[in-house]
């Protein structure tokens, strides 16, 4: 392989999108109302579309002749490099929206920065995805504000979701030697700046929603190295079943 670090980096992006897209897809037919059911599955399809482009780039970088399906469906659990946040269960509607909001607030500034990357294909994927992500963040922000500043029950549920998910948010900004190497080569942005941007968005929206940021700093990490929570195996069982039962199937 020509560029192991860049391959790993793109794979991490792709796995975040794929696993979150798969999770959101579970809402299909179960949304709280028809309109939101369609909105959630639209976001899911956007994420899976982004994953396809990223896997195509990753497979090109890997140069092993694998297509995007093989990367998406035929790896083992410890070979997936997504953050733990995206594999957490949907829970109630508040949990799903807050998980999505934390992710969107991270992805938007990341894509904006990646549009400047000298890796042309990565910049092109970022430019295409940034519009989708801007809408996702708008939609989830609107919901966070309405739930937080809504009824007692919606406020309570939104706050419970924040309190539960907060421990998974710091991993979004996890950096190791792969990131450092690529940052030195000026191919990708530092996540420090992205984190400051994320915090600004989160503070602004949560304060308008009358919700509070948890004070505890308990953190979970491991996804970027392939160490996942107990939920990941079940997601992969659903995700990989068809491709393993009918190898090379397409539709």
């Amino acid at each position: 392989m020509q560029d192991q670090a860049l391959f790993e980096y793109v794979l991490r992006l792709a796995d975040d999108s794929l696993i979150l897209g798969q999770r959101l897809g579970e809402w299909c037919g179960h949304g709280p109302i028809l309109e939101e059911d369609i909105a959630l599955t639209n976001i899911s399809l956007d994420l899976i579309g982004q994953a396809i482009s990223l896997y195509d780039l990753a497979s090109e970088l890997e140069g092993a002749g694998k297509n995007h399906d093989q990367l998406a469906y035929l790896r083992f659990e410890n070979e997936y490099k997504n953050v733990l946040l995206v594999e957490q269960p949907n829970g109630d509607f508040a949990m799903t929206i807050l998980r999505q909001f934390f992710f969107d607030a991270f992805r938007l500034p990341l894509y904006e920065a990646l549009m400047q990357s000298p890796v042309a294909q990565l910049a092109a994927i970022a430019a295409k995805s940034v519009k989708e992500t801007r809408y996702h963040l708008k939609h989830t922000s609107e919901w966070v504000i309405r739930m937080g500043d809504g009824t007692d029950e919606s406020h309570e549920r939104a706050q419970a979701a924040i309190d539960h998910l907060w421990r998974y948010t710091s991993e979004l900004f996890f950096e190791d030697n792969i990131d450092e190497q690529l940052q030195e080569r000026q191919l990708v942005p530092s996540l420090k700046g992205i984190q400051a941007n994320w915090m600004e968005t989160v503070k602004a929206v949560l304060s308008e929603a009358t919700l509070t940021i948890p004070t505890n700093n308990w953190k979970f990490e491991g996804g970027r190295q392939g160490r996942h929570s107990e939920h990941m195996g079940y997601i992969l069982a659903d995700l990989q079943y068809m491709q393993r039962a009918y190898p090379n199937m397409e539709w």
């Binding site: 028809l34 309109e35 939101e36 369609i38 639209n42 809408y135 708008k138 939609h139 609107e142 309405r146």
Partner: peptide, 20 residues
């Protein structure tokens, strides 16, 4: 037509339901 709690979300729902 569709249901929504307010105008902003009605526009977003319309975007998702009718302009995909």
């Amino acid at each position: 037509s569709l249901r929504a709690p307010d105008a902003t979300l009605a526009l977003e729902n319309a975007r998702d339901v009718y302009t995909r």
